[in-house]
Design a protein around this nucleic acid. Structure first.
Lengths: 193, 193
DNA sequence: TGAGACATGTAATCGGTTACATGATTCC
DNA sequence: GGAATCATGTAACCGATTACATGTCTCA
């Protein structure tokens, strides 16, 4: 079987198509009108990616021949696509994903709705949280080397990173409590401040 | 003249080489042992990029022939490289850069040390701040459409984005006050909490 | 009925990742 | 003096960006 690793965009497409069958243009619309994944909505990225996924059997294309001269492909998730997606959703967050900043950790979280159990998602958030905490410690380590008055801007930039990961850390905790709370009542989530 | 646009990596290299002449391996070390720019430290990215920059005249390579069989190139910034770097540093933050998340806004800030005046950097932070604020409003707009109990995870993911940009917004304000403060005294910057 | 927006892609280019290759240095 | 590690790259592949091409619908 030798599961090939896919790009973040491709997993995003699997997740999106997995919600409901879509055409390339539908995907384009989602990417360009919502903050979903902050992927590029360029057709030169989307269409080839959909084709690739269809080619390796993770998606299947149904030809809509309503307009003959310009038929369009409606993609839906195959069983093995479902499998690949779920395998990915079960991966814990890694340090590399966090640093790369391509948004993979949060994408997995968002796509886990309906595909992971509540407890699995909570466990995912827990590992997410740990990885972030470890990385924050690492960044603090640099502050001792780098913090000198001559290097003010460098220090400030470093604190930018630290703060942003601290905010991410708080989010993981908050999200977990919201999910737990939703299990007991059906109130809407509210930002904590 | 038609200044060609460079990649973020290339600007990072200009900035780094601009601090002191470096070899490809030096760059690799910086990228792999510090949080500078969170670029990939893969040689396949660094060496070709240095060559490209040298080829278009923004860097110049001096051959160090100390070891004959394996001479190495020490790169330094040329006048036109200096120009290109400063032109870039003078660009205000754009919405696209912010969303793309490649770290360009913070990289420009960090590299502005010694190349922009204090007031120019403060002005840069001001536009940075405004762009972030505008984007946060945009994201809040989505919460009204998207926030439904059935779409809990989607909402939570959206709040992840909002929080992280809010943290960025606070950083821009904090950094500006630190810079102003440093103008009056020479204390080290401290995180605000 | 012609202009513009909406829809559906393809092609060329190009930067980055992964993997490979080889030369020097250290150190056991 | 052989292995491991440091240093300095090259090559192949492949995905993404940019630009282009063409079909279809709306509506003044």
């Amino acid at each position: 079987m030798a599961e090939k690793k896919l790009t973040t965009l491709e997993y995003g497409l699997l997740g999106l198509v997995g919600m409901s069958p879509l055409t390339g243009y539908d995907v384009h619309k989602v990417f360009s009108t919502t903050p979903f994944g902050h992927f590029s909505s360029s057709p030169g990225a989307i269409y080839p990616a959909l084709r690739r996924l269809a080619h390796i059997g993770l998606l299947e294309a149904r030809l809509d021949t309503a307009k003959e001269a310009r038929p369009r492909r409606i993609y839906s998730l195959t069983d093995s696509g479902e499998e690949a997606l779920e395998a990915w959703l079960h991966q814990p967050v890694t340090r590399e994903e966090l640093i790369r900043g391509a948004g993979a950790p949060i994408l997995r979280f968002a796509l886990s709705a309906g595909r992971l159990t509540r407890d699995e998602t909570l466990a995912y958030l827990e590992t997410y949280q740990k990885v972030v905490a470890v990385y924050i410690e690492e960044l603090y380590g640099y502050t001792e080397q780098t913090t000198s008055p001559e290097n003010l801007y460098g220090s400030l930039a470093l604190y930018h990173g630290i703060r942003s990961f601290e905010s991410e850390l708080e989010w993981t905790k908050w999200a977990a409590t919201e999910i737990r709370r939703a299990g007991r009542s059906s109130r809407k989530p509210r930002p904590s401040r």
